[in-house]
């Protein structure tokens, strides 16, 4: 469904993403992990059209979408959320989600109804009239999810939707993500914390300093010495094995 090939993106001299490739197949939940500053968000933003890649290609459903504007990519059926949540602060949760829902319909009543359905799906139906600015961190993360979902995507790019949540909230949002997948949406999920991904993803990619250093099942990844070193520093794998 999504084929990312040799994407590179530099900011000035800094190579944030360096020849990274990944694949997502229809119906999967795929994880993308890596230490802070690895380039995960940059890779997402590049896939979703927010950055133009210096090199490489992105294909969605077999069609090249490299360098297309975000709204065109959204129209193709792929939508991203933001790690640093970007609520429409001055308007209600309902209106926030309606902006997403308007992507599929120009009708106000349909959009409002769709917003309510999606809000129920992410467990926000009791907060529809709250302002975007008045939400808790968990609420904002859910709103990111809800708005993106309301556009009716086939592939959802989630950027650290669990960061900053407490364990109860994480369990809840993991349930929501599973429901979304069950509803037929394919998911590519960034997490900084490895554990968060293992309960969800069938496959995991590991990005470190802009390079894709490993790919495999969560179990295999957790054993991979290169991955352990990326997280804990050089030599750590040897120490852990000893």
């Amino acid at each position: 469904m999504l084929e990312v090939r040799d994407i590179s993106k530099a900011f000035g001299g800094l190579k944030a993403v360096d020849h990274a490739s990944l694949d997502v197949k229809q119906g999967e939940i795929v994880g993308l992990i890596g230490p802070n500053g690895a380039g995960k968000t940059t890779l997402f933003a590049t896939i979703a059209g927010f950055h133009r890649p210096d090199a490489g290609t992105v294909a969605f459903d077999g069609k090249a979408i490299t360098g297309l504007a975000p709204h065109r990519i959204c129209a193709a059926g792929m939508v991203r959320t933001f790690q640093i949540t970007q609520p429409f602060a001055g308007i209600s949760v309902r209106e926030n989600i309606m902006v997403g829902a308007y992507f599929r319909t120009a009708d106000r009543h349909l959009a409002a109804r769709e917003a309510e359905t999606v809000a129920a799906m992410v467990g926000m139906d009791d907060q529809l009239d709250r302002r975007g600015a008045d939400l808790t961190v968990a609420g904002r993360k859910r709103l990111e999810l809800a708005r993106a979902l309301a556009t009716g995507p086939r592939l959802l790019l989630l950027d650290e939707v669990m960061a900053g949540l407490n364990p109860t909230e994480i369990v809840e949002i993991v349930g929501v993500i599973k429901d979304i997948r069950a509803a037929g949406v394919t998911i590519l999920l960034i997490e900084h914390v490895m554990q968060a991904v293992t309960s969800l993803a069938e496959r995991v990619y590991v990005l470190n300093q802009g390079r894709m250093i490993a790919e495999g099942t969560p179990a295999a990844i957790a054993e991979n010495p290169q991955v352990v070193e990326a997280y804990l520093g050089p030599g750590a794998a040897k120490v852990l094995r000893a």
């Binding site: 979703a48 927010f50 975000p70 429409f88 602060a89 309606m98 902006v99 993106a148 556009t151």
Partner: peptide
């Protein structure tokens, strides 16, 4: 609604198509 979305947060508006 789209105008208000643009006013409130241009990047989020772009992401939502």
């Amino acid at each position: 609604a789209r105008l208000v979305a643009i006013r409130e947060n241009e990047d989020a508006a772009r992401a939502l198509g």
